[in-house]
Write a protein that binds this DNA or RNA. Structure first.
Lengths: 241, 241
DNA sequence: CCGAATAGCTGATGTAGATCAGCACTTCTC
DNA sequence: GAGAAGTGCTGATCTACATCAGCTATTCGG
């Protein structure tokens, strides 16, 4: 069976041949499910497998000694979970499912083996990883230099854009299982302040976050307000023919 | 001639064979120099080449519309400059030399071509990119969840550790061409506050930053204070034999 | 040799966002 | 069916940092 999540993900970066596709098929046929709240990858562990998210939401985060947590990114269908943990000796972060999730598993040796067989796959993974890194960089800029409202606006717009790419959102809005606590840990604010800022954005007629749904009340004004620029998401199409 | 900067960089992640080394030699023989202050890579441009820093310091940064700047990372000898810009369609950041720098140039087509010939190279680059991403993630956590003093302490410790790896620093300290303005843009503070916090750290007998030199006055106490943990730098040795 | 940058430094004041404390509503558990 | 836990929401207070303003010491170009 063709057309799994990993193929869609990598196909966005390089056009894959038949043989490459069949190598991919071999790579990730093990399907697994995880329940919400129980970590999939744990900081400090040595991981033998990564996953590609088929359905549901997850988040990758780091804990500080004092118990504070910084969410690095949320993962939506099509995204890798724990790829960096697989590539590095010990995982530098944890991954937790926010909802129940379905994933396909990718074993380290299989992945590295596949690179040797079909180098274009390695290039594709490298490009996918670069795009992920670009997103982290963008978050860094947001947290370092934007105020609370701009940060939250950017955050919601980025999520919306990513979900739209996989058919789960539009300029009107998207379904969103995140609590205000989760958003706070992602944008580096307190949950209390997230609440206030969301109210502000709602009263200004920009976005409404309510009952698990994010509605863009005025997408263009919101994008302008947030200085939202998604070139970093680099979704023009395959770089390699 | 063997033993250039790129070989050292990638050799840290995979053990490279003779043929792989010779491919590498072909890859980056063009040596260039850039003067301090004039951008090497520019946000929004499409880049055809990346570089490996042979000597000097550089920084990668992003600008916001209002003129604020966030420095994403500093590059020291052995680091890539603009690798992500090469891999993506359009560069999401700029790179500026802080001192005069010497680099070797790597052309996009050469790099992608080399991946096809020797897939292990692709793996090596992927691992190197993962380590870079891990550092950005660590910066994100620092900016999101640590206070000014912890942030600066972490920042100096990380620079020290990285410089030590390439023989340019030790637990005693390192030479450092960064102004307080540059540090401020990197850790997301104002230069004024950087100044005050550095004074605080100095008065507490932890670190002294003076006349282009960073001295760790009490490395262990500083590391403890900053909760410094360098597992994310992942320098245990080659993952692949 | 003089004016203009650049860098480090400091005090006074302002503010964005944290923290604390508490209410209302829903869902889950025994 | 009562308690406990999770989530959203709000007012009052506190504080870590930014901003403004201005000082000194170097360096650098003409």
């Amino acid at each position: 069976m063709r057309n799994n999540a990993l193929e869609r993900k990598l196909g966005a970066f390089v056009a894959l041949s038949e043989t490459e596709l069949s190598v991919l098929d071999e790579l990730n046929k093990r399907r697994r499910t995880f329940v919400a709240g129980r970590d999939i990858v744990e900081q400090g562990q040595t991981e033998q497998s990564a996953y590609v998210l088929a359905s549901g939401w997850a988040c990758s985060y780091k804990l500080l000694q004092d118990g504070q947590r910084q969410i690095v990114d949320f993962q939506i269908p099509g995204d890798f979970l724990g790829l960096r943990s697989l590539l590095m000796h010990v995982s530098d972060h944890s991954v937790e499912p926010i909802t129940d999730v379905e994933v396909t598993e990718v074993l380290r040796d299989d992945l590295l083996g596949a690179f040797t067989q079909t180098p274009r796959l390695a290039t594709a993974v490298l490009l996918a990883a670069s795009r992920d890194e670009a997103m982290v960089v963008e978050h860094l800029v947001g947290i370092g230099r934007r105020n609370a409202a701009e940060r939250l606006a950017n955050f919601l717009l980025e999520l919306g854009a990513r979900l739209t790419l996989v058919g789960l959102g539009s300029k009107a809005g998207f379904e969103c299982p995140l609590t205000q606590y989760l958003m706070a840990d992602a944008v580096g604010l307190s949950a209390v302040h997230v609440n206030r800022v969301l109210r502000q954005l709602r009263e200004d007629g920009l976005v409404t976050v309510h009952e698990g749904f994010v509605s863009f009340d005025d997408y263009d004004r919101l994008a302008k307000f947030a200085e939202f620029d998604l070139t970093y998401m680099d979704q023009i199409g395959p770089l390699l023919k």
